[in-house]
Nucleic acid binder design. Structure first.
Lengths: 133, 133
DNA sequence: CTGCGTGCAAATGCTTTGCAAAGAC
DNA sequence: GTCTTTGCAAAGCATTTGCACGCAG
């Protein structure tokens, strides 16, 4: 129940650094990853502030939470088209994937109604494959 | 590092009740759901025992964890074929789905190697649809 | 009997929150 | 100056673990 931007919102170094993390990285980030990035420019960001800003930015519609099975929540810039994610088993980084051919249709029991779906691919990302050779 | 069943394992009322929950329900269950079921037959099961037995049964290969985005872990009987799950937005129950046509192939970035995938359908289950009419 | 499994309560680990002080405007 | 945002530390929650006792074998 938060109005768009009719209510005063202040710009702080911390909030700027947090937003910058997403703009510069363009990859779903976990709170800890956001903290690391933000601390590069603003050394004294606290994890509590990261969590608070993530929540605020989600409420504002600037971020969307990315929930993955068995993983801490990640967040990504909102407004993107329908897409899914890739989780590297090695470095635990999450990447966005383009395209989703919803041709897979597991049989739904009678009377069930599906509204949406989540797909996650697991594997090794380009950066980690060399380490696996 | 637990051997199959060469090492002594004792049968207790609690463990029996926990195993029964899965056999009788045939649906992925959360620790809390397991506790509720188990307490029907053994009134004094503690949640700690549920967690301990879930871990043991997974180590023994009798259960497999079912991780879903943003949800507490569920567990289901092992040995089933590759399948995916359905989460009811209403009652939060998880159901197993048969069949998976892996025809959906989001574009992988160059150099990425996918090993497996997870698919979750969201919707309303047959039991909850009437309440939505 | 022996010692594994259990209940309880304390300990985690991650996320949220209260409060006084710092900072934006 | 006013009122939001921050940092710190304490509070919450779900899950795990230490310990002494109870029960299976």
């Amino acid at each position: 129940m938060k109005a768009k931007n009719t209510i005063a919102t202040r710009n702080t170094r911390q909030k700027d650094a947090i937003r910058a993390a997403f703009v510069e990285t363009d990859r779903p980030l976990s709170p800890e990853e956001v903290l690391s990035y933000a601390q590069r420019s603003v050394s004294d960001v606290s994890i509590a502030t990261v969590y608070r800003n993530l929540k605020t930015l989600v409420d504002d519609g600037w971020l969307v939470p990315v929930q993955l099975p068995g993983e801490p929540a990640r967040y990504e810039l909102s407004g993107k088209e329908h897409h899914h994610h890739f989780l590297c088993k090695d470095c635990r980084k999450v990447y966005e994937l383009e395209g989703c051919v919803p041709t897979m249709k597991p049989k739904l029991p009678r009377g069930f109604r599906a509204v949406s779906h989540d797909l996650l691919l697991h594997g090794i990302c380009a950066a980690c494959i060399p380490r696996h050779a």
